[in-house]
Amino acid sequence: MSKPVGNCSNCGAPITFQFSSAVQTTCPYCRSILVRHDVNLEKVGEVADLPPEVSPIQLRTDGVYKNQPFEVAGRIIYQYEQGYWNEWHCVTNTGRSLWLSDAMAQYAVTGQATPPSRLPEPASLRPGQLFQWNGLQYQVTTLTEAQYLGVEGELPFEYWDKSKVMFADLRTGTNQFGTIDYSEDPPLLFLGEYVEFDSLRLKNLREFEGW
């Protein structure tokens, strides 16, 4: 794994990229959001105070998903009407990006997928709507308008825009799960499954006092 080194364009601190696929990171000293352009690091923003949302997962937490070891490289925190949720950016030992979401301690692992059919416009989406993908029936269960609230660590794309984004959650009759992310055009599709916390065999978790 290559570890390109640069300096924070804001405070000059040394910046290490753990993952070659990462495009963006945050400076651990001055909390600048840095985007990689060849060898230069451009400051594109600054991380505000992270919300009180608490996930047991943190940067450098590692675990195993489907027999593949992974490490947590970064995260995006979203805020919506009913709280917050985390999308932890995980990089597997083969360099693949996975997303481990923690929404009120309900955990799901997803990966970006090619939409098997054209994804509908957000305005035409309705809860209850059904999609047949890969032999499974996905049902739109919730439409959430969320806002970027903060980032941490390394991400596989630039993400620091603060405009509201529409998300559609899709559920199935089993633990299979999907999300349509309307932050880009055409929208992105993430498919995966809900997982039991223990099944990920996570290590280097945060500690909770008294637990």
Binding site: V54, P56, M104, A105, Q106, F197, L205, F208, W211
Partner: peptide
């Protein structure tokens, strides 16, 4: 009227 109680149980790792 019929009333019943609901308790919220929490574990910081496993949730609710």
């Amino acid at each position: 009227p019929y009333t019943w109680a609901e308790y919220v149980l929490f574990n910081p790792f496993k949730g609710f």
